[in-house]
């Protein structure tokens, strides 16, 4: 819960968090080192100075640290924990569902545990989806289309194999598909920046919701265009949020674009923990106002009601969280 300076209590769902292990002992090769170095560069580039962690802590933190940062020191009421496997870079994977389950199952009221699959595995991917549903009763998946696999440097949501996976997800009630479409971490060529595959998949699977994490940046214009046309395409604000600190005017412009095109009902707050921590993000977001010229030109506003939706109510709707029941349980 976030308590505003007026004493108002705000329900917060953090849409994107990780429980990773990128310690040198788990790094399989130089890519593992470079990957976490890149995350650390994001972290130190966009965090206020007093929020920057030592590198060692950033590489590997324990469950207690995470719980504290999100729910005790931090304002999160609930958090969606998203996996990123990266088994080609890390011996036990970077942040697998199994790893995340350790913390998520210890605090079932707090965490929503998501799974993942790689359609390039063919039948094994389908078996994996079944297993994730049976073991963890997942409601959502996080997909990483730029992930390397053997000679392949990525895949697309509208590949035939991916469609088979989506059909199964739909049957099993795994309806929230989070897709990483953002800054390239493991790109090769043109595909990594492109989010048009979301358009095809969203049209063909109207019963699934596609949450485009990092709102397609740097292809924000493409993403907005797709999200306008497709009711089931949402935007996740991980990586966008910390620009509040580093480039506030720019953050205002991006938010105005998103509110204008995507709308206040389809945007979700996220810290992308542990790249950033939710405390300062939520505090500053609550205090943030769009400059007058941007508000007027776009005809949108970031009112307290809009902020409440973005901070928690929208994600609650996606995951059928009974907000009153959750408040009653978590706020006492």
């Amino acid at each position: 819960m976030y308590r505003t300076s007026d004493g108002e209590e705000i329900f917060v769902v953090d849409g994107h968090t990780h429980f990773w292990d990128a310690a040198p002992a788990n790094q399989r090769n130089v890519h593992g080192k470079q990957f976490i170095d890149c995350f650390y560069a994001y972290h130190s580039a966009l965090s206020p100075e007093q929020e920057v962690w030592p590198k060692e802590k950033f590489e590997k933190y324990d469950a207690e640290t995470m719980y504290n940062d999100l729910f005790v020191d931090g304002p999160d009421d609930m958090a969606i924990i998203q996996p990123t496997y990266l088994k080609e870079f890390y011996i036990d994977g970077f942040n697998t569902t199994e790893q995340n389950a350790v913390i998520a199952q210890a605090h079932p009221d707090r965490f929503i545990l998501n799974g993942s699959f790689d359609p390039r595995e063919g039948t094994a991917a389908l078996e994996r989806i079944h297993a994730l549903k049976e073991t963890y009763d997942i409601r959502g998946v996080k997909l990483y289309t730029a992930e390397w696999r053997g000679a392949s440097r990525g895949w697309r949501l509208n590949d035939t194999e991916a469609y088979r996976c989506f059909e199964l997800c739909e049957q099993l009630g795994i309806t929230n598909v989070h897709v990483h479409k953002g800054p390239t971490i493991t790109p090769l060529a043109k595909d990594a920046f492109d989010c048009h595959d979301v358009d095809y998949a969203a049209t063909d699977f109207p019963n699934l919701t596609f949450i485009v994490e990092h709102v397609g940046l740097p292809r924000l214009d493409d993403f907005c265009w797709i999200a306008v046309q497709e009711a089931n395409v949402w935007g996740g604000l991980a990586v966008v949020m910390p620009f509040m600190h580093a480039r506030p005017r720019y953050f205002a412009e991006v938010m105005a674009e998103l509110l204008f095109w995507v709308g206040e009902d389809k945007l979700t707050f996220a810290s992308d923990y542990a790249i950033w921590t939710p405390k300062w993000l939520v505090e500053r977001f609550w205090d943030f106002e769009l400059p007058d010229d941007i508000r007027q030109e776009r005809g949108v506003d970031l009112t307290p009601e809009v902020k409440k939706k973005i901070l928690g109510l929208n994600a609650a709707a996606l995951y059928d969280i009974d907000v009153d029941a959750a408040k009653a349980k978590l706020w006492n």
Binding site: Y42, A45, L46, P183, L217, P218, R219, L220, D221, D222, C224, F243, A246, R247, Y250, E253, V254, E257
Partner: peptide, 12 residues
């Protein structure tokens, strides 16, 4: 819109 999209990577 085009500029704002482009500027993201620039800022990053």
């Amino acid at each position: 819109s085009v500029r704002i999209a482009m500027e993201f990577n620039g800022a990053l």
